[in-house]
Simulated assay, not measured.
Amino acid sequence: MAKIRNIIIIILITVAVGAAVVVYFYLNMIPEVDPTVGGNTTGNLYNGGYFCEMDGKVYFRNNYDNGCMYSMNVDETDIKPVTTMNVYFISGNGNYLYFYMDSQHLSLSTSGIGTTVKYYGVYQCRLDGTKQKCLYRGRTAAQAMCGNYIYFQVKDANGGSLLKIKNDKTNLTTISDEYIDPCGFCDGKIYFTGVTKDHNLYMMDTLNGDKITKIADGYIFYPIYHDGYIYYMDAVDNYHLKRMELSTMKVEKLTNNRVECFNLNDQYIFYSVAESLTPALHVMTLDGSSDVAVHQGIFFNISLTSQYVYYTPAKDNTRMYHMPIDGSQPPSLFNPME
Rank of each mutant, 00 (worst) to 15 (best):
C134W: 14
P324A: 02
T115S: 09
P31L: 01
T255I: 11
T255L: 10
I113D: 05
R5Y: 14
N301T: 02
E338S: 08
T84I: 11
H226L: 15
L246N: 05
D217P: 13
V122P: 04
T110Q: 12
L201H: 03
S303W: 06
L246M: 12
D234N: 06
A20S: 15
K250L: 13
C134H: 13
L201I: 09
Y225N: 01
Q143A: 09
K214L: 12
M284K: 13
A19L: 15
R319T: 08
Y311I: 02
L45D: 01
S289N: 07
D217I: 05
Y268S: 15
I165T: 05
Y321N: 15
I298F: 12
M204V: 10
N317A: 05
Y24K: 05
G228K: 04
D181Y: 09
I165Q: 01
L201M: 07
Y271H: 10
Y136D: 09
T140E: 06
Y149S: 08
N158P: 12
E245K: 12
F89L: 01
K57N: 10
N317F: 11
V309M: 07
G114M: 13
K164R: 09
S303M: 07
Y46H: 05
Q153G: 03
K118L: 09
Y88W: 06
P324Q: 00
E275W: 11
P313R: 02
Q124I: 14
M85S: 04
T14L: 13
C125T: 09
K315T: 08
D205Q: 07
F299M: 01
P35L: 00
G56N: 06
I150M: 14
H282R: 13
